[in-house]
Design a protein around this nucleic acid. Structure first.
Lengths: 334, 334
DNA sequence: CACTGTTCCGCAAACGTTTTCATAATCGTC
DNA sequence: GACGATTATGAAAACGTTTGCGGAACAGTG
């Protein structure tokens, strides 16, 4: 830490140590190339001056920023928080720092942010992107991208296996005697929504349960609130919500109306957000191992950016990415 | 977009436009210095080649990264999400990008992250930092920092005015006939906790309400869950929770025990997180204009970094930063 | 002692910008 | 029509690193 405000450059430590800048650089980056004792001297001097390499200069010559970008639809959505946390936690112990951006669930914003990010990062993790396939390819052409909750030919992706959880949910509901259920659909253009609907439909068909489609509803509390009345009108005995927020909205409106849950109507949510376990009754829901997923996304990206990384299992065993049913208080015998 | 994968440099557009790199740079950055028609030509060429200035090179020569850092205790805490969103939204329309980091509520992590950030940003927004004052000064010496939910001599800070909301809450509870209340304390070393306790104590004293201190509890749902039994044991008729999460925990445990809310016990939360309005009954709480606060933090930072910014109101009128009571379902006549 | 190999280190180029300084061209003025 | 002022542009230095290349010193070998 020099007394004058100006930060120490590599030259400063070089002259203090009585060597050339090249040697300082080597001492720092490729220790095996420099004599052990000069190296120690250099390190001491660097320490003494509080030398920190200028990242802009490094980036310029190396052509890499050592930053990665992360774009999610909505930070405030309790479903994405663990994803973000997982990615942040992963990169915390690496040389990479992460840029986070929130698209406000808006496709145009998403595209703009992706463009802006591209200039500042080596790689981009896109969480549940809404942009078109060709747009996606364009982005992937400029930087390496990893996708979560979405597939594409242009980039590798990490996904959850919805089937086990959904199977369990349907089996559970069937065992309780429900034969006519509703699916409360989320955003029509969302991959997650289509997946959920697909596996749900299959599982219901297999067990002879009638599945009626309602919605789409916005994937938030208010969406579920609105859905509730349509659900009772539909004459079903149980409802699968697109996600927990929707399920919670339904629950809230229903208790307000005096409809008994789970007595009159069963509710199954999706995601297992923290709030789901705090209501009364707590929400039966399909839990997603989001943490494993986000770490998988981060690890995949890391492996792409740094070939040196101990090629750790690029993807965790499929079992870890399987969803599963959490039976709580909103489902019971018809 | 050149056919070969390599990105176009300023030289490429210069030679295409038949001018020198200097002119291209000027055409892009100081249009008034270059002849209108050559400027147009340069712009066209740049467009045609898909030219994007290399940020590392710019940073190197300009000595600024045009990045700002944001460090919060916990992304998943619904209280911080709007803060993050506000900051992100503000900088979305500027030349700055934001680095987000989450400390997991851990002081050591916070310090490490701050150190790591310093190298990559022009400024750092610290939200409710836990680090020591001297640590804080050290960081502030290396980059410009703006504080939220914390004061320090070393850096400007943005704060909420807790008094109005707390006054209203106490007046409300008093009007309902409560004369003996509890404060469910949060983390002892937290500035927010001390502030809340202070104004609450003053307002209660003023109106002749007995205030008994309970806790500290961890500032989460489970903390409140644990607090609930101690609250009924304390023989009070209403409780002010450190925050909504705690309030919700209390509510949940109480309904579980069959204690009527608000009949037997009133609960007042703090923060107005989304979940607070979704429970049954919905939580009476003191709302914080977090969005205004986060934008104030962002604007303050922006003004520090870019003197050119239209010195907009560096801080919004105090009124906008005032908390206020939201009366919902968890308070009623004793 | 001459040769070949190693080990260690310095020189200088390169990365892609911005900006100072100098110069050429144009203009207005008397 | 000469002259200072103004405008438009280019050449080159600078920002702080990394790294290819080559040289010096030294060790080992015949």
């Amino acid at each position: 830490m020099s007394a004058d405000g100006t930060r120490a450059s590599i030259r400063a430590v070089a002259s203090l140590a009585g060597v050339s800048p090249s040697t300082v650089s080597r001492a720092l980056n490729s220790p095996e190339l420099v004599n052990a004792e000069t190296r120690q001297r250099v390190l001491d001097c660097a320490e003494r001056l509080g030398y920190q390499p200028n990242r802009a200069a490094q980036s310029l010559v190396l052509g890499r920023t050592r930053n990665v970008g992360l774009i999610v639809p909505d930070i405030a959505n309790p479903f994405f928080a663990p994803f973000i946390k997982g990615v942040e936690a992963y990169f915390r112990d690496t040389e990479f720092a992460v840029f986070l951006a929130d698209t406000d669930e808006d496709t145009a914003t998403e595209v703009r942010l992706a463009e802006a990010m591209v200039e500042r990062v080596d790689g981009l993790i896109l969480c549940a992107p809404r942009m078109s396939g060709t747009r996606l390819s364009a982005v992937a052409a400029k930087t390496s991208v990893v996708l979560a909750y979405r597939t594409s030919r242009a980039a590798p992706s990490v996904l959850l296996d919805f089937q086990p959880g959904l199977d369990q949910a349907v089996a559970h509901v069937h065992a309780l005697g429900h034969r006519r259920c509703a699916y409360l659909s989320g955003p029509a253009n969302s991959w997650s929504n289509r997946q959920r609907r697909k596996f749900l439909g299959a599982a219901c068909a297999e067990r002879g349960i009638d599945l009626v489609d309602l919605g789409p509803y916005e994937p938030r509390f208010t969406g579920g609130y609105r859905a509730a009345d349509e659900v009772v009108a539909a004459g079903v005995t149980a409802a699968f919500a697109y996600n927990d927020l929707v399920g919670l909205g339904v629950l809230s409106r229903l208790t307000e109306r005096g409809v008994k849950v789970p007595g009159d109507l069963g509710i199954v949510g999706f995601d297992d957000i923290p709030m789901a376990s705090m209501t009364n009754p707590p929400l039966t829901t399909v839990a997603m191992p989001v943490n494993a997923l986000s770490r998988a996304a981060a690890a995949t990206m890391h492996a792409r950016l740094d070939p040196g990384v101990p090629k750790a299992p690029p993807l965790p065993p499929a079992a870890e990415l399987a969803t599963r049913l959490l039976i709580r208080g909103t489902t019971g015998p018809v």
